[in-house]
Design a protein around this nucleic acid. Sequence first.
DNA 1: CTGGGGACGGGGCCC
DNA 2: TGGGCCCCGTCCCCA
Length: 571
Amino acid sequence: MEQQNHSKQLLLQLNQQRAKGYLCDVIIVVENALFRAHKNVLAASSVYFKSLVPHDNLINLDTEMVSPSVFRQVLDFIYTGSLSSSDSVSDHSVSSLLTAACYLQLTELAALCRRKLKHNGQTPSSSNKLTPSSSSSSTSPTPNGHIPGPLRLSSTPLRATPNHNHQHHNNHSGSRKGNQRNQRWGQEGRLREDLSEEEVFISGSRCASLSPSGGSRVNGLALGLDLSKRSPSGSTATEEVSPSSLPHSPSPHSSSVSPTPTPPTTASAKPEPKENQRQPPNTSTDLLPRAPCKRPRPHREATNLGETGKALPNGLVKRPGAPGGEKLVRGDRVTPVVEDGEVGGEENSQDQSEESGHSGSEGGGGGRRNGNTNYIYRQPQPGFEPGVGDNLYVCIPCGKGFPSSEQLNAHVDTHTQDEIYLEDEEEEEEGGGYLKDEDPDADPDIYASRGVEPGADETRHRCTVCSKSCKDAVSLREHEKSHWLNRPFPCNICGKLFTQRGTMTRHMRSHLGLKPFACEECGMRFTRQYRLAEHMRVHSGEKPYECQLCGGKFTQQRNLLSHLKMHTSPS
DNA sequence: CTGGGGACGGGGCCC
DNA sequence: TGGGCCCCGTCCCCA
């Protein structure tokens, strides 16, 4: 007895799951594009992948050997066993496909391509005659399947394939099904402008429409990715992340990259009807089956709101008794201290540090529109690979990376005082300057520190990070070095620097759209368990945070704090 | 148009 | 290394 079409049906199911991102446990990076797939399928199809997927959840492919569009065809072939006629219509595309097939050691596909070329009277190029092993020798894994080198999502050729070092998040989170993609950052939106439609796809399924008015969202949902969440106008449903593909020059200043959201409300960012306010990702899948949300609950209870009696801002403490958790009650007095501008010293000061003023998007850049939390955000220069190897210490002025703080210090000394002044003057002439989003009304000292007021040397040589005044530029530079060294963890995707590795890896999860924590009620996914716990109150109706002035109840503490500001504001 | 509220994202910090 | 919590926000809806 034999079930007819069993294998075909099985493959069909797998391909459908791939399209939705369901159970996908590996991400393949090709130039600017990310593809989700299943390790088992890849391993069963490709010797190359077979050697990699046991060790890696995120695999970079050499873009000299395979382009995103070609890999899409490859992936389609793997999951369907056939090539669509449109994909293989030209000999050139077949040749490219053959190259990729050899590189990826897809023997069946390579044979198919060769037959196709032969049928067309073409002779496979020498490169295509390479044996699988030789063709991929430059990027083959080491005997243990490991090629040193961190993750780089870059338009530059990616030599390193798997990612081990400094990419622990890949191993921990990469296999999780992050079906959403935060397309919030205008940076990503901008880089997509550089991409041809052919290159815009996910999981092998190209976004059929780049319509900015929601089409991308629908397509993204079709791919198992949530693109509805604050998608910047014009952003597309891709997972491409590559600062180096930004259409900006890589000069030290103009290249500063902030996670710049595009203007929130434009014709292309038409809001769509939502249920539950912000529409959960899978609740809008009218046209598509919703990805199953049967993922087991996180092992921690979602009602862990903190320790009873724990002091909270504004003199508030949590008290037991609130349903499912604790209530926030007022302490001695309600004196909200969380005011605009009162943020963590280091963070806030860092915000005012070097930032390009030429983002071109309304509201400046950064993940924050008001610029309160813009950070040193340095676009790597050409030839510089941030974080490659152990080069975790990044020189802010030039973007070069070094394996140790000592080496970075030595390098920084090579930057002359004249260099600094020249750069400052250039920026001022450009009308920009590297203090992005600075508001002279809010902090006139910022401008003063940049020499706007000639004659005030102490003011001129003021640290842009902590506002410390220095007697001269040399002293200032020495002082500022201490700040740069405080952020030794650069994001390998965007170059942003972080104080802690954990924060950096968490940040990178957002790049990769990895959201391991899913709501069982609505399917919405989160990057953090804490967020899920917070979100669950939406469904439970629990509002543990109560305003002691008016009795208003809130599901989130931050909303209570915001509410308290309203009480204390003069108006 | 505006303010308030609801919901959620990112980063820093501490454990 | 990751979780938890806090704070910074944004975005959206609605009255």
